[in-house]
Amino acid sequence: MEHCPFCWDAVRYEATAHNEHCALIRNPDKVLNGSYMIVTKAHRATVFDMTEEEWADTYRLLRQAKQMIDRDSAPDGYNVGWNCSPVGGQTVPHVHLHVIPRFRDEPMAGRGIRHHLKQESNRRGSDTVQQW
Rank of each mutant, 00 (worst) to 15 (best):
L97K: 11
I25G: 02
H3F: 06
A74W: 00
A15R: 03
A15M: 11
V39Y: 02
T51W: 05
R124N: 03
I100Q: 00
V95N: 06
S73Y: 14
E54A: 11
E14V: 09
S126Y: 09
E106V: 10
R63C: 12
V47L: 11
R102G: 03
W55H: 14
T46H: 11
P75Q: 14
T58Y: 04
R102N: 06
A42R: 15
Q131F: 00
Y59E: 14
G112Q: 10
E53F: 05
R12N: 03
R63F: 09
A42E: 15
A45D: 10
M1Y: 10
S35A: 15
E53D: 09
F103W: 04
K118N: 13
W82A: 04
Q90F: 04
R123L: 07
D105S: 13
I69C: 06
V80M: 11
A109Q: 08
V31I: 14
D72L: 08
V99A: 13
V129D: 04
H43L: 07
K30S: 13
C7I: 10
F103S: 07
D57S: 08
H21I: 06
H21A: 12
E2G: 05
V47Q: 07
N83P: 02
V92I: 15
C7S: 11
G34D: 12
Q131V: 11
R104A: 15
V31R: 06
N33D: 15
R44G: 03
Y13H: 14
R114F: 01
H43Q: 13
F48R: 09
L32M: 10
T91I: 13
G125Q: 02
V95Y: 01
R71W: 07
M108D: 15
I113R: 03
A56G: 05
H21P: 00
K30F: 12
R12Y: 04
G125Y: 00
R124S: 02
L117H: 02
N27D: 15
Y78N: 00
T91C: 07
H43P: 05
V92C: 11
H96G: 10
L61M: 13
F103G: 05
L97Q: 11
V99C: 12
S35I: 13
N83D: 03
R114A: 01
W132F: 06
W132C: 01
K118W: 02
E106F: 05
P86V: 04
R60V: 12
M1F: 07
H98R: 05
L97S: 07
A15P: 05
T51Q: 05
V31M: 08
L97N: 08
A109H: 12
D105M: 10
Q119T: 00
A17M: 13
S126E: 11
G88P: 03
D76P: 00
M50H: 06
V47S: 08
C4M: 08
H116T: 10
H96K: 14
F48H: 11
E106M: 12
P5Q: 13
C7D: 13
P107K: 02
M37Q: 14
I69E: 06
N83E: 02
K41G: 09
V47W: 07
T58R: 09
G112T: 12
Q67A: 14
V11N: 04
I113C: 09
A45P: 00
D70A: 03
A10N: 09
G88M: 02
P75N: 14
T128L: 06
W8Q: 06
R111V: 02
Q119N: 01
L32A: 10
A65W: 01
S126H: 12
W82Y: 15
G112S: 11
I113H: 01
D127H: 01
